[in-house]
Amino acid sequence: MTVVRVFWLWPGVVLLGGCALVAGDRGSVVSVEDRPLTTASRSEPRAQVPRPTEVASLPTPPVASPLPAPEPVAVVATPLPSPQPPAEVEARPSGSVGAEGLTVASAAPAVREAGLPRASASQSKVVAALTTQANQQTRSGDLEQASATLERALRIEPDNPWLWHQLSLVRLFQHQDEQAAQLAARSNSLTADAALQARNWRVVAQARERTGDAEQASAAAARARALGGL
């Protein structure tokens, strides 16, 4: 045993010396925190994970670059309408300022129809908080986050037509035109509020215009006009 140890001692020292030569510089280790979790051989590891909804390539913030269509700009310029007041409250149509401080042309349209959520006031508070958050996220261009926030709100109040409408707007900003039109239709199925319906038809019109469906686009625009609204 001892013999063997002695035998290994010298080569050991030489080895160390050799290594000292080789490893002149102290290697730097990447800490757990920021160590890339991929091997060097996979230079673009993330690219190999397919991501249809590429979050990295978000479209430019909607507010910064208004969408081209002339008429629906009104919709686009006001990212999200204000959260709906609870159904029990007879709101007056007014040009009031939304909870987030956004000036929305008809921020609080009359609410009375059956289409509105039978939510209690406190629940509306939660949804209002989420709507505010979604609004901020939309304004700063975090559209994926905004839609996640609205989906959170929808889990709480699935029959709230405003939430569906807001989501349809976010989809429009995301250039998911088919979904924008579908979500607007969903919103319309839940409300009898003419102003909201007009907004939704406007979304449909713009989405259809983009998908190249001129006939449907102009039909939707006509319905929006017929409903008055904005």
Binding site: R46, V49, R51, P52, E144, S147, A148, E151, R186, S189
Partner: peptide, 30 residues
């Protein structure tokens, strides 16, 4: 009420940096 929503089991998948790689957002079809 006639709006088909594909049944989903996943909301999102995030990478090690907590950024979403993919979100399975709500989508409807009338």
């Amino acid at each position: 009420l006639g709006f088909r929503i594909p049944l989903r089991a996943i909301r999102e998948v995030t990478g090690p940096d907590h950024k979403p790689l993919k979100r399975y957002g709500l989508s409807v079809e009338q």
